[in-house]
Design a protein around this nucleic acid. Structure first.
Length: 806
DNA sequence: AGCACGCCGACT
DNA sequence: GTCGGCGTGCTC
């Protein structure tokens, strides 16, 4: 009888994307478990790599000679059966390798790195090699050896057995420890020790006095040394003299250790909130895997509903996951959860260091936290007995990962909801068309919050400024008179303003400054993109091309301009227009450093600035009572992106940013500068009219055969040579047509809007379809082929339901 | 991926 | 006749 383990090895390739069988050596039989990471030999040579056990079986007949597992990397499984099954789902739906999916589910420190060494054997080496390569050492790193002029000689010595190759698998998941002391003597004994001290033994006297004060509990040595001014050597002496014991204790790197969270109580819900909560509770109690869409205007108190629903699930002894978009995982959000649930909360987001992430993960795994708040990847939290999964701002594109594996956290959350027989709650003020349509069809259950729950505070007054008129008045800056006046007003009243510059679509289109006209594609409902390199306007969906116009085809004006601007330029303009204004600029440049984001917001919150100027990142979750003015400098840019979601994104952004004004007692005002004041996305955002927007947009999607009526799949091919990328893209399209019915629509192949990135040319094709059972077979062949094509410098990606088309 | 094998052209 | 270039195929 032998135990065999089926193992997924750390080789992300098509040919190795399957379990390999290994023998479990006797000494590991009691340790191995499904979900454990192990070190295994793989391939010829004695290369060692990491693997995941995905199956264990006992067998009588000795199959083909199997290699044996070398050792384990964990003492307990790091992936549950559930997460292993989820990895299968992910692999199938994202066209990626199983090993990539498994690694994505774990903190990055658990990914192995490999080092290769050249070691000496008992056979003597030539003197020159010994002296100039090994430098007297028993072994050296392979990478170093490769650079040496003696490398060729080394290879020969390897063949003759004079040197060996050793592979090392290392994983960085180190636990942080701290030293603690515990007294072992009775107070009488300690007292006696103290009396016997020499007069000048000040340190020991202090230590003994300290030990006399304390009880039998453990005390952190670092803290004792600091607070009682006792040296490390005195403590070590104390150990030798038998006064105390020293031990190492594991500690968590708690990023919130310095914060104090005062416990708060649930708020009283209004009748709408209560109704929504009751419906949720009913579903939770009946263990139904319902998906709810909670549609609530900004300020309707969605978060309080989440908190109380989660509290209900904890009260039943279950656990919960709360996903929030990366960008809005502000200290404010975290605080709200920590205040309600205390240490029961684990937080996972990209602002944490690798070690901190690992520790939060460990806290969850050890069942020391039952609520997980985090960004996209928190959907993989190793919780058991989940009772509820909440996805806040459900419409956010950041729930989809834009590199392999291109999973969508929303759909994986729903998968987990099914597995645990628990509901999933999607919340948004501006639901995605996809989610809202599913609610309409009854696939999701719709819950609506119409009332503002917080202060019955009025909706902010929203002013739309027609920048075309401003331009006629020879405006030379990015600020309309109206916005500038209002900014001055706030400064006089010592109130604060937030200015948002929409950076999406930077400079990528041309627009008539007289009438706001943007060149559309004659075949698709989107605008054309400017390609300066070829001096052409191109459609990224169907490939249509035309010249850059120099006169506006509508008003015949000649003020056709490339459109786009940056935060730095705006800041300079502000300095000239309002020299006294204190401005905090927040964009990718000023927030790159860890903690910078938080720091800037803190400064602004403390009133250290009059104006917060930033990009999209300031649109969400900020809650500053003294902000009474929000200005959107350029509402149009996102609108003109060659993306069928352009209107949706603009509407969502404007609705959200408007919600930033007037959070306190003072009422707020919003100024939206636009060249398209009559566009439905802008007009409907003005009064936060989601329903009419949804209805209107849905019609357009229907007409254009876009989601939610059609599924979309994007294929991208890139190569350093443009014609090779194009050629391959055409071949793929031709090939895929054999797997598609005539109902499927192909857009492309076309070059991508940024046709050349990092010296590579990109071509893309988008397939729109309703029901194509053969498509996945075709895509799997493409995936297989992409592996081989790598050798020819081609990169091929498959993106199911892409979020961005640029 | 990464390693070995094998077949080819360029050297002593 | 050997060294080393890269194309090909396999890894429990």
């Amino acid at each position: 009888m032998t135990w065999i383990a089926d193992i997924i090895v750390d080789v992300p390739a098509m040919q190795t994307d399957q379990p390999f069988s290994y023998e479990v050596p006797d000494h590991l039989v009691d340790v191995v478990e499904v979900g454990l990471r192990v070190e295994v030999p793989f391939g010829n040579g004695n290369r060692h790599i990491q693997g995941f056990i995905v199956g264990l079986r006992e067998t009588l007949e000795t199959e083909v000679e199997l290699k044996a597992i070398i050792g384990v990397l964990d003492l307990h499984p790091v992936l549950t059966h559930e997460l292993l099954a989820l990895a299968d789902e992910m692999k199938e739906t994202t066209y990626s390798y199983k090993i990539t999916c498994l690694q994505t589910m774990l903190p990055s420190v658990m990914k192995s790195s490999y080092t290769k060494y050249v070691t000496q054997t008992d056979k003597a080496l030539p003197k020159i090699i010994e002296e100039e390569l090994f430098l007297g050492l028993a072994e050296i790193e392979w990478e170093q050896a490769q650079e040496s002029p003696h490398f060729a000689e080394l290879l020969r010595l390897k063949k003759t057995g004079h040197v060996d190759i050793r592979y090392e698998v290392t994983t960085k998941n180190k636990v942080k420890t701290k030293r603690v002391l515990k007294k072992v003597m009775t107070n009488e004994q300690l007292q006696a020790e103290r009396e016997n001290l020499r007069k000048n033994a000040v340190q020991k006297w202090r230590l003994l006095s300290f030990l006399l004060e304390i009880d039998e509990a453990e005390h952190g040595i670092k803290e004792v040394m600091e607070t009682h001014d006792i040296s490390n050597s005195a403590i070590n002496d104390g150990k030798k003299l038998g006064w105390l014991t020293i031990e190492e204790r594991e500690v968590y790197r708690d990023p919130y250790a310095l914060h104090q969270f005062k416990k708060d109580e649930p708020l009283v819900l209004n009748s709408e909130q209560q109704e929504a909560l009751d419906t949720m509770k009913e579903s939770m109690d009946a263990s139904k895997s319902d998906v709810f869409l909670l549609e609530g205007v900004t300020g309707s108190g969605k978060t309080e509903v989440y908190l109380q629903a989660i509290a209900h699930c904890l009260a039943k002894g279950q656990t919960a996951i709360m996903l929030v978009p990366e960008i809005s995982l502000t200290p404010q959000t975290v605080t709200r959860f920590k205040k309600r649930f205390g240490d029961d909360v684990a937080v996972l987001h990209s602002g944490l260091s690798q070690g901190e992430k690992y520790d939060e993960w460990r806290k969850i795994e050890r069942k020391e936290a039952s609520v997980v708040v985090g960004a996209r990847s928190a959907v993989f939290a190793p919780l058991e007995n989940i009772g509820l999964i909440v996805i806040d701002e459900e419409h956010e594109g950041s729930y989809k990962q834009d590199e392999t594996p291109r999973y969508h956290a929303k759909y994986l959350a729903i998968w987990r909801g099914n597995y645990h027989h628990c509901p999933v709650l999607l919340g948004s003020a501006t639901p995605s068309l996809e989610a809202r349509a599913r609610a309409q069809k009854g696939v999701y259950r719709l819950l609506i919050l119409n009332e503002r729950a917080v202060s019955k505070a009025t909706l902010p007054i929203i002013n739309i400024v027609d920048m075309k008129l401003e331009m006629k008045n020879a405006l030379s800056t990015s600020f309309s008179n109206q916005l500038l006046e209002k900014l001055k007003e706030r400064m006089e009243k010592k109130e604060q303003s937030v200015l948002m510059l929409n950076r999406r679509g930077y400079s990528s289109f041309v627009m008539c400054r007289d009438c706001g006209y943007v060149l559309p594609c004659p075949n698709c409902d989107i605008s054309l993109t400017l390609h300066m390199d070829t001096k052409q306007m191109k459609c990224h969906y169907c490939g249509h091309e035309e010249r850059i116009p120099y006169r506006c085809p509508i008003c015949d004006g000649d003020k056709i301009r490339y459109y786009g601007t940056g935060t730095q330029k705006i800041e300079e303009e502000l300095k000239e227009l309002l020299p006294d204004a204190r401005v905090i600029r927040m964009d990718v440049d000023t927030t790159r450093k860890k903690g910078a984001h938080e720091k800037l917001l803190k400064q602004f919150g403390a009133g250290d600035a009059d104006i917060l100027l930033g990009t999209q990142m300031i649109a969400k979750g900020l809650d500053f009572p003294n902000v009474t003015l929000v200005g959107v400098l350029n509402a149009d840019t996102a609108l003109n992106l060659p993306d069928f979601r352009a209107s949706e994104k603009t509407f969502q952004l404007l609705t959200q940013v408007s919600g930033r004004a007037g959070r306190g007692d003072k009422s707020g005002e919003v100024v939206i500068q636009t060249f398209n004041p009559d566009h439905y996305a802008i007009q409907l955002a003005k009064n936060q009219e989601y329903e009419p927007f949804y209805q209107h947009e849905l019609k357009l999607r229907h007409r254009g055969n876009y989601p939610p009526f059609y599924f979309t799949t994007q294929l991208v091919v890139s190569h350093e040579e443009e014609h090779l990328a194009a050629k391959k893209m055409f071949e793929i399209v031709h090939f895929l047509k054999g797997f598609l019915s005539p109902n499927a629509i192909m857009l492309g192949p076309t070059p991508k809007s940024v046709a050349r990135m990092n010296k590579r040319y990109y071509y893309q094709t988008v397939i729109k379809y309703k029901n194509e059972p053969e498509l996945s077979k075709g895509l799997k062949v493409i995936l297989e082929e992409s592996q081989k094509e790598m050798r020819n410098g081609l990169r091929i990606t498959i993106d199911m339901e892409p979020q961005h088309f640029i």
